[in-house]
Amino acid sequence: MSNLLEIRDLHKRYGTVEVLKGVDCTMRQGEVISIIGSSGSGKTTMLRCINMLEEFQGGTITLDGAEIGYETVGGVRRRKPEREIARQRALTGMAFQQFNLFPHMSAAANVMLGLIKVKKMGRDEARALAEKWLDRVGLLSRIDHYPGQLSGGQQQRVAIARAIAMNPRLMLFDEVTSALDPELVNEVLQVIKGLAEDGMSMLIVTHEMRFAYEVSSRVIFMNQGRIGEEGDPREMFVKPKTERLAEFLKSSTFN
């Protein structure tokens, strides 16, 4: 079976600072991969390259066999047209640390915007889908509320519904619980667990080690712009092979 996502020799620089120094990663459909590592290790950057929120200078990312963001014509690597990049971005869904809901739109309108403008759905169809997914994240009763009227955990769940309603091939979660009060973390993690059980392919950047352990089929430990170690969480968390991962796990909290 072909791979859903293939990352080959990914290099990313900010000016002269190299943050990704050759990352290789392969992901099959239905896999749930958690990316862990200390801050500055490049895990969020790697995630953001996959939907071209960050440009990258070397390597390739392939989703469903199609190269993301760049094409090589006559030996010259160049950025794809913006329209094509926008189309490719819709193949992945992303949830952000800061939720980034559109504050001037109700929960329903947040979910419907992409459906109507990108997927070209009619309003009724889009509204029905918004109802379905907001119900799924437990917020059907808040469907006409605005982000300012929702708690952080509720906002994040709406944001996840907004991404997932687009029916993406791959979901990207970028530290989605880091900005939440501790008592609101769990409601968001439960939603992600539910999606994992549905067989959604997911890449999850997280600091929640217990969650990564429970939900992931595989864990990637990023260290200084490279993959330091990867494998089954049940082995990695119990018996880390590298010194760096052992240190990182020691300094992390499992709760």
């Binding site: 939907n51 071209m52 929120l53 913006e82 329209r83 926008a86 189309r87 971005r89 819709a90 992945t92 869904g93 992303m94 952000f96 800061q98 980034n100 809901l101 559109f102 915007l113 992409g114 403008k117 990108v118 944001a159 907004r162 991404a163 687009m166």
Partner: peptide
Amino acid sequence: PKGQTEAAKAIGLT
């Protein structure tokens, strides 16, 4: 905030 543009991009808006 920049996150607004990023969220819009992420759902595929031009």
